[in-house]
Computed example of a mutant assay.
Amino acid sequence: MSASDQQIPHKRTVVSYVRRSDRMTAGQQRAWDRYWGELGRDISELPEGPLDTTAWFGRSAPLVLEIGSGMGETTATMAAARPDLDHLAVEVYKPGLAQLLLRAEKHDIDNLRLLRGDATVLLRHHLDVGSLEEVRIFFPDPWPKKRHHKRRLVQDGFVELVASRIRPGGTLHLATDWEDYAEQMREVCTARDELRNRFADQPGGWAPRPEWRPVTKFEQRAHSEGRTVHDLIFERV
């Protein structure tokens, strides 16, 4: 069943990301010019219907979607460590995607493809129901001011959409260093009958920090500023 066969009632009137400059360094521009045509696509320019990842990757392998890959440090490391998985990285920030292309070039990573644009559009219109092995959302913009909480990505409608695209037994992995956002994530995901917290028996329901998730400079800064990083891992039932 294609994405269009099961419409999830999730309509956003505000975006969850900060619009930033697309100015790139010379190295990022070179990587963009050299590799984007092969490894990247703009979501707004995708043809109607499900994305043909088998043709794009040149094989059929379990598919991992990372929403908000930032500058690509974590993404590149995880993709290189798991060549048996195909990785899709979604990001709106062009220099971040270009930096990820540089990292892919440096480490000769061939199981990674990049998408620029709104992850909600990708999920709703270009990914089949049950097509994903895992969805990762690491350190999304916390929008810390209460009046901006409506801009946070992890809301009920969005999680419903994400869960529909994960295969039974697949996982949704979230991480944040903002306490109230972590609690919101836990509440929203726990409320979904199709998701089960793999670590519900742990204090707070928080997952132990996976050793395979690299520590980024943002996480290091969070620790230095006294913020606790929380991981949540939910399984699609």
Rank of each mutant, 00 (worst) to 15 (best):
S2I: 11
Q7S: 15
Q7Y: 07
I8C: 09
I8Y: 04
I8W: 01
H10P: 04
V14T: 12
Y17G: 00
D22R: 07
D22G: 13
D22T: 11
T25L: 08
A26R: 14
A26I: 07
Q29F: 08
R30N: 14
W32I: 03
R34F: 06
Y35L: 14
Y35W: 13
G37L: 06
G37W: 00
G37H: 09
I43T: 01
E45S: 13
P47E: 02
G49W: 00
L51S: 05
D52Q: 12
T53Y: 10
T54I: 05
F57M: 11
R59H: 07
S60R: 11
A61C: 13
A61W: 05
A61N: 09
L63H: 02
V64C: 03
E73P: 00
T75F: 08
T77D: 04
A79I: 01
P83E: 08
H87K: 00
L88S: 11
A89Y: 09
V90H: 09
A98N: 04
Q99P: 07
L100N: 04
L102R: 12
D110P: 00
N111A: 03
L114M: 14
R116S: 02
G117M: 02
G117T: 01
D118R: 03
T120E: 15
L122C: 14
L123M: 03
R124L: 05
H126R: 04
L127P: 08
D128G: 07
L132A: 04
F139T: 08
F139H: 15
D141A: 09
K145D: 12
K146M: 09
H149Q: 09
R152E: 07
D156K: 12
D156V: 09
F158S: 05
E160V: 02
E160I: 00
S164K: 02
I166E: 01
P168N: 13
G170R: 00
H173P: 08
A175H: 07
D177C: 02
D177H: 03
D180Y: 12
Y181F: 13
E183L: 12
Q184N: 14
Q184C: 12
E187G: 15
V188F: 06
E194Q: 14
A200C: 11
D201L: 11
G204L: 10
W206H: 11
P208D: 11
P210W: 08
P210R: 06
W212E: 14
W212L: 05
R213T: 07
K217R: 15
K217H: 13
K217W: 01
A222T: 09
S224H: 14
E225N: 15
H230C: 10
D231I: 04
I233S: 10
E235S: 14
V237G: 13
